[in-house]
Write a protein that binds this DNA or RNA. Structure first.
Lengths: 125, 125
DNA sequence: AGATTTCCCTTACACTGTTGGACAAATGGT
DNA sequence: ACCATTTGTCCAACAGTGTAAGGGAAATCT
């Protein structure tokens, strides 16, 4: 556990993925969700695991191993959830992220925001 | 000029500061605006200058020296503005920032967002 | 048993974040 | 003229985060 300081953007992505996946957050699904959030940028699986490791060292997330499941290749998974410290850190970072967004919209206008919402929002491809 | 890749969060803060300051963007004012955006986290002046340097190397911002002004300590300032490449990079990063915010609000709810807006928005202290 | 599928983890390096202090150029006072 | 003060820029060094590439383990299927 190092410092409850501010998160990097990739750490924010990983933690947001864990948060939104709720009970289905393990390496592979987290990776998929992060790629969805970071689109169109590609993300390597290794990057995700390294970051999960470091977040756990900092006490921001916790993990545990599941039992194997009876499917092909269904080996045990390492599931993750946010710790209280992690929730706090994510909240603060999210507020900063929102200030950035608001500042930009203030200058470039709401028309721009709408346009980008259409092209890059979660609904569209 | 290195790669027009994704920006770190601090780089986003600095560029957003330049954007919103319009014609008044130089080291000291940028530092002040970044601290406002990153509140309550403190930011050192050196961090800002180093980041400005690297952003200029990457061709995302441009700078020029002004004439001195007739006030106490009124030496010449280095002003900054965003380059076209920088605007594009900031837009993409901002979209990712917004996806993070939306994902979090989706889980924690709009009540939470409102509450944090009151306590941490630009209006309040 | 061997092939296939799903998943976890490590090593190594590049880039970004941050501190702390050095240095430069104006004005104001004595 | 000289020195203190104000405003401002910049560098060196280190810590921390981002990323790719590849090694390897545990299931099921045939």
């Amino acid at each position: 556990m190092v410092k409850p300081d501010s998160l990097g953007q990739f750490e924010q992505l990983v933690m947001t993925a864990i948060l939104t996946l709720r009970d289905e957050a393990y390496g592979v699904t987290i990776h998929a969700k992060v790629e969805e959030l970071a689109r169109p940028k590609a993300v390597s699986l290794g990057a995700v695991y390294v970051t999960l490791d470091r977040l756990e060292d900092k006490g921001l997330v916790a993990s545990w191993l599941s039992d194997p499941t009876p499917e092909r290749g269904g080996r045990s998974k390492r599931y993750y959830r946010l710790e209280a410290l992690g929730e706090r850190a994510l909240q603060e970072s999210a507020v900063t992220a929102k200030r950035i967004w608001d500042g930009i919209v203030e200058v470039w206008g709401k028309e721009w925001a709408k346009e980008w919402g259409k092209r890059w929002g979660k609904e569209a491809g």
